[in-house]
């Protein structure tokens, strides 16, 4: 499977033509590796993302919110599963990929390394974090790799309820008691900048971008997506009477964009390198689940093997 120029040219022509690359199609080794990296990171993000929200399931203050939050976290497990299965079509093994997450080699979205400190964080995460993810994901639904695009279409359909639920929670809190209003404003103050960081570094500092765009895995630049998210979200914040913790936020009539302040990339880099508030805790939790589940997975495999053996001997 050498990357000869003719095959590469044909491959890039297919992509430029809007064709879908399927698992058994020829693809450059680098395309395959980039996809494995991107898709794994995405799947890991969904799984780790279950934890900050899972933290509040047992404290949800009404039965309706309890089932809503539980259903959302369940969806995140499902999304991780769709994407892990998508990665497997590229010849990677789910166990191996997960091992990379657990030993710290693989990355996941930095946002999930922040702690969830109040119930209001649940609404704010649904509104801002899922909101940011949707801006990204809507474009991934047209990714050039078939299994990824199809997983993303499924995910986008399910994601809509997450954001609506989050925004509804935020508006109820913002219109609630003074304590609730303070709670949600505080949550916004903590999650706003990390949500902007979800779009990644400015494209100037993003080495992979150009190639990923040529190969139809990335459709728009980080900065474009971030700006789109800001434009959408500022209006929503204003509508519910919440402020965003950015004194530089200003509407520009000429560009019709909300200009915003400088992101603290030092914080971003720290978090990405494993030095955020919850990095250790998130991985410890996943390692513990994996470890404690080993006897269960082994038992199921052993049971199935026994059943196959006995049915074979019955047949023979």
């Amino acid at each position: 499977m050498s990357d000869d120029p003719a095959a590469m040219a044909a491959f890039e022509a297919r992509i430029a033509n809007g064709e879908s690359i399927e698992p058994k199609d020829w693809m450059p080794e680098r395309y395959r590796k980039q996809l494995i990296r991107m898709m794994s990171q995405h799947a890991h993000s969904e799984i780790v993302g279950m934890l900050p929200e899972g933290n509040w399931i047992t404290r949800a203050p009404s039965l309706r919110r309890k089932v809503g939050l539980l259903a959302k976290v369940q969806d995140e497990a499902g999304h991780g599963l769709y994407i892990y299965c998508g990665v497997e079509t590229l010849g990677a093994d789910r166990t191996d990929i997960i091992a990379q997450l657990l030993d710290g080699r693989a990355k996941y979205s930095s946002i999930f390394n922040y702690p969830t400190l109040t119930w209001a964080d649940m609404g704010v995460i649904g509104w801002l974090v899922d909101g940011a993810a949707i801006v990204n994901q809507t474009l991934l639904a047209k990714a050039s790799y078939g299994p990824y695009a199809r997983a993303m279409i499924r995910i986008c359909k399910e994601e809509n309820f997450h954001k609506r639920q989050g925004y509804e929670m935020v508006s109820v809190l913002a219109a609630g008691t003074p304590a609730q209003k303070a709670m949600v404003q505080d949550a916004v103050n903590r999650f706003w900048w990390p949500s902007l960081m979800m779009f990644g570094p400015s494209d100037v500092n993003s080495p992979n971008s150009a190639e990923l765009m040529r190969w139809g895995i990335k459709r728009k630049s980080n900065d474009e997506l971030r700006q789109r998210f800001v434009n959408l979200t500022v209006t929503q914040a204003i509508a519910v009477g919440l402020t965003l913790p950015d004194p530089a936020l200003r509407y520009d009539d000429a560009t019709e964009n909300w200009d915003f302040g400088e992101i603290d990339w030092t914080e971003f880099n720290q978090v990405v390198r494993g030095n955020g508030q919850c990095n250790q805790e998130r991985l410890d939790t996943r390692r513990q689940a994996e470890h404690e589940g080993a006897w269960v997975r082994e038992a199921a495999s052993a049971y199935a093997a026994k059943q196959r053996a006995s049915s074979t001997s019955v047949a023979a």
């Binding site: 799984i47 279950m50 934890l51 899972g54 399931i57 047992t58 309890k66 089932v67 539980l70 259903a71 976290v73 369940q74 497990a77 499902g78 991780g80 599963l81 892990y84 939790t285 513990q288 689940a289 404690e292 589940g293 080993a294 269960v296 997975r297």
Partner: peptide, 21 residues
């Protein structure tokens, strides 16, 4: 519901969440 995010395998996280729901 306390199992969500801590199950022995992803498929089971989803199954247990369904039961809790």
């Amino acid at each position: 519901s306390q199992w969500c995010g801590h199950g022995p395998i992803l498929e089971e996280d989803i199954a247990l969440a369904n039961i809790a729901l």
